[in-house]
Design a binder for these strands. Structure first.
Length: 277
DNA sequence: AAACATTCCTGCACGC
DNA sequence: TGCGTGCAGGAATGTT
């Protein structure tokens, strides 16, 4: 997964394929995800109509009738696939297909998550804003709330690496490890730079490249690094357009210098020592 | 066999 | 001293 572009790609596919459908039944095979699924989730979902599919940060929001919302997070290794009736159901994975929804058109939505860092939670629509998972999230990077002025202010006085802050969901919602490296490369800022030392011009570039990179990735259907698959079971195509991520030792596309791989805030990070200051 | 696309929690350091 | 905040580190887990 599953950073913002992957979840947004998933949202768009499900919006077309599942909106208006009714969930006739739900089966929970494994409820031990990041948090254990509530015991009554399957019963509460059965019979509910899917009104819309939304997204906040990396959370997918499946809006149901009766003012219910199913919150889905894919963690590190989760996927939610839509399998049409009568078509190849894809490789059935009994060990990791943890939750399955049957729709009234014969299709199925299958939640698969090997590492089980994901989350599925049913909440009332009125409690959405106050939900612990969504409360405190920063602005959506594609929603206009993530301005250069905002980011510049948010970084003042902060000693943590700028990449760490860019990935902090309270600062901006949806940027994860892959795109943080890509955004900082395009902005010409090293991931290790202390956030408080980012100049105003650099903050402007970061704030501008953040939505640009995410939008481009959405256009490519997201990034498949190892195992990510979209709702149709297809890998994302943005991996071919990654300029630094997982390219340690390979030449920078701008200057030819060898891309470096380092660890920042315990996450693998990549940058060009020549282009990024 | 070490690394991993995410989030949450703990504990320490620092500053007021 | 006490408290709040920031930050680092680790844990959760299965796969490649």
């Amino acid at each position: 997964m599953p950073e913002l572009p992957e979840v947004e790609s998933l949202r768009r596919i499900l919006a077309r394929s599942a909106t208006g459908r009714t969930i006739v039944s739900a089966a929970v095979r494994e409820k031990r995800l990041r948090r254990a699924l509530d015991d009554d989730v399957a019963d509460a979902i059965a019979g509910r109509a899917i009104l819309a599919i939304g997204r906040r940060a990396k959370y997918l929001l499946i809006e149901l009738d009766r003012e219910l919302v199913l919150l889905v997070h894919l963690g590190m290794s989760g996927s939610l696939t839509h399998r049409r009736a009568g078509f190849d159901p894809g490789p059935f994975d009994p060990r990791h297909d943890h939750v399955e929804f049957a729709l009234d058109d014969g299709a199925r939505l299958v939640y698969n998550d090997p590492r089980r860092f994901g989350l599925i939670k049913l909440i009332k629509k009125s409690e959405l804003e106050n939900a612990a998972e969504l409360r405190g999230l920063g602005p959506e990077p594609l929603g206009g709330g993530f301005s250069s002025e905002y980011f510049w202010r948010a970084t003042r006085g902060r000693k943590a690496a700028v990449k760490t802050l860019l990935m902090d969901q309270r600062i901006v919602a949806g940027v994860g490890n892959i795109y943080a490296s890509e955004i900082l490369f395009r902005a010409g800022v090293r991931p290790t730079r202390r956030a408080g030392r980012v100049t105003r011009a650099e903050a402007e570039r970061i704030a501008a490249y953040t939505p640009a990179v995410l939008s481009e990735a959405i256009g490519g259907g997201g990034t498949t690094f190892r195992s990510y698959r979209d709702a149709r079971g297809q890998p994302g195509r943005f991996a071919e357009r990654l300029q630094v991520y997982d390219r340690e030792g390979q030449p920078c596309i701008k200057c030819g210098a060898a891309i470096r791989g380092i660890v920042v805030g315990q996450r693998s990070s990549f940058y060009c020592p020549h282009c990024q200051k």
